[in-house]
């Protein structure tokens, strides 16, 4: 008997949220961290962008977590599904498992690193 795939539905919802995050928040992060700072382009500052964002305490840390976790989820989920469409259909289950493993570990690692850098995140300002 067919059954509503609840978990699948929720995971698709998260994937979709990740798509919005990667579209609206990721480009500026790539530009600041990966292009503008190393090449000395606008906005030129003394402090590197990652430190600047992290030193902006809660809101900066939250911005990084949402952007990185959302983009990672979206990117990995979509990429493993694309691989099944170009000849790896047989490895579908394995790709899904590896994909979710990378997503879970990546998001956990992001949270841990951010808290390590900014341990007071959960204490009130």
């Amino acid at each position: 008997m067919p059954k509503v795939a609840r978990l699948h539905a929720i995971l698709w919802g998260v994937f979709s949220m990740g798509g919005f995050i990667a579209a609206f928040l990721l480009p500026v992060l790539i530009y600041l961290v990966g292009i503008a700072y190393p090449l000395g382009l606008w906005p030129v500052t003394n402090e590197d962008p990652t430190s600047a964002i992290l030193n902006h305490h809660h809101i900066g840390t939250l911005f990084l977590f949402v952007t990185v976790a959302g983009s990672l989820y979206h990117g990995i989920f979509r990429f493993q599904s694309t691989l099944t469409e170009v000849g790896l259909a047989r490895a579908k289950r394995a790709l899904e498992a590896i994909g979710y493993l990378i997503i879970i570990l990546g998001i956990l690692a992001t949270a841990i690193y951010l808290l390590q850098y900014n341990p007071s995140f959960f204490s009130l300002p």
């Binding site: 990721l26 992060l29 790539i30 961290v33 990185v68 983009s71 990672l72 990117g75 990995i76």
Partner: peptide, 13 residues
């Protein structure tokens, strides 16, 4: 495009 989104995220992590 998802490849680039995913790999940049991993490098940044």
């Amino acid at each position: 495009t998802s490849f680039f989104v995913a790999v940049f995220s991993l490098i940044y992590i």
